[in-house]
């Protein structure tokens, strides 16, 4: 089945220049996204997951810079566009939702004004058209009595409602791509469930592609078709959601899956944390960034960065254990399934 590609990130490298030196936050990341697909980017703080997305949207802070690589979105390389050209894409073709709905809404503008702004700016709608569309968006995301809500200010909304407004705003221009950076982390589980259901529904209804950035494996298991696991500024493993959960091939993915409790299990099992700390990206290790914390680390892992080995159809893992000459290791998690 041939799928149409919407986004292709090729070997992206992003660095930050700080007073202590160059921080190589993203060290060569490639990610694909097809039309109508939801992918997850999973990783802990400092793994480069948010910086990859900020590079994509041209929202890096002053001291950050894309060093190398391409970000092909619908045939254009976003990395080479000017700020002016990016403004036409952001909020129009690419919508964004951030973690904290309180700080990402303007407190002195009404919800209506904020919803209408991108419509008037990007879609050249009249005020009346924009108003109608905004009301329609608010009811789409499940906000009761949208007409009167339009005239209210962000502080009059609860956390979950604000996040719905953010989603309405991000989707108002019918973007081809929705980037959601930890969209439910600040919310309660019941509200989180509502927002995730909403995102899945919108994906099917408007055929928007979604990139979901999160550290919560439960969330990606529910929403995403494919998952990229990031570690130390690199993609450690990429594959379908079932690949990652049932036949993972990278020790970091194993570690992640082992360190979360399974609420379905009755007997108490001790958690198995990944010992140690993530690498310092001021001086990234020469070899595999995970080698330091990896119980399977071999000599080569310290000396040479592992390439992304193809371990199945569309399933790749950057770990030397997948080299044909490597010793065979029994994965401690998953279902022990092999790739068909």
């Amino acid at each position: 089945m041939e799928k149409e590609k919407l986004l292709e990130i090729r070997n992206l490298k992003t660095s930050f220049y700080t007073h202590v030196g160059e921080v190589k936050a993203v060290g060569g990341v490639s990610i694909d996204l097809n039309k109508g697909e939801a992918i997850g980017i999973v990783g802990e703080s400092g793994s480069g997951k948010s910086i990859t997305m900020m590079s994509l949207m041209g929202l890096l802070s002053e001291n950050g810079k894309i060093i190398d690589g391409e970000i092909i979105f619908e045939g254009r390389d976003l990395a080479k566009l000017s700020e002016e050209e990016m403004q036409k894409i952001r909020g129009n073709e690419i919508g964004m939702i951030f973690q904290d709905p309180m700080t990402s809404l303007n407190p002195v503008l009404t919800i209506g004004d904020q919803l209408m702004e991108p419509l008037i700016k990007h879609k050249k709608m009249s005020k009346k058209e924009a108003w109608d569309r905004a009301v329609q968006m608010l009811s789409l995301v499940g906000i009761p009595s949208p007409e009167s809500r339009m005239k209210q200010y962000p502080h009059e909304f609860s956390g979950g409602m604000r996040q719905r407004v953010m989603i309405a705003m991000a989707l108002a221009c019918e973007p081809k791509l929705l980037i959601a950076d930890e969209p439910t982390t600040a919310l309660d589980v019941t509200i989180q469930a509502q927002i995730l259901e909403l995102m899945k529904e919108l994906k099917d209804k408007i055929n928007t592609s979604i990139i979901l950035i999160t550290h919560d494996l439960g969330v990606v298991a529910d929403v995403c078709d494919r998952i990229n696991v990031m570690y130390g500024g690199l993609v450690a493993e990429t594959g379908s959601t079932r690949d990652i959960f049932y036949r993972p091939k990278h020790p970091y993915t194993w570690g992640l899956l082992k360190s979360i409790p399974n609420p379905k299990k009755d007997e108490k099992e001790r958690l198995k944390p990944i010992e140690g700390q993530p690498p310092d990206l001021l001086k990234p290790p020469v070899g595999c960034p995970f080698a330091d914390r990896c119980e399977y680390a071999m000599k080569i892992c310290m000396q040479q960065r592992p390439p992304l080995f193809e371990v199945g159809e569309g399933h790749k893992a950057a770990c030397w254990l997948n080299h044909p000459d490597a010793p065979k290791v029994e994965p401690p998690v998953g279902r022990g399934e092999t790739n068909e």
């Binding site: 019941t190 989180q192 439960g218 969330v219 298991a221 979360i260 609420p263 379905k264």
Partner: peptide
């Protein structure tokens, strides 16, 4: 509340009924 917990298992997540 319990039905809203995201389950880190794609098959179970797909089969689970959520009380919204």
């Amino acid at each position: 509340l319990l039905s809203a917990i995201p389950i880190p298992d794609p098959d179970e997540a797909a089969s689970k009924k959520r009380i919204v």
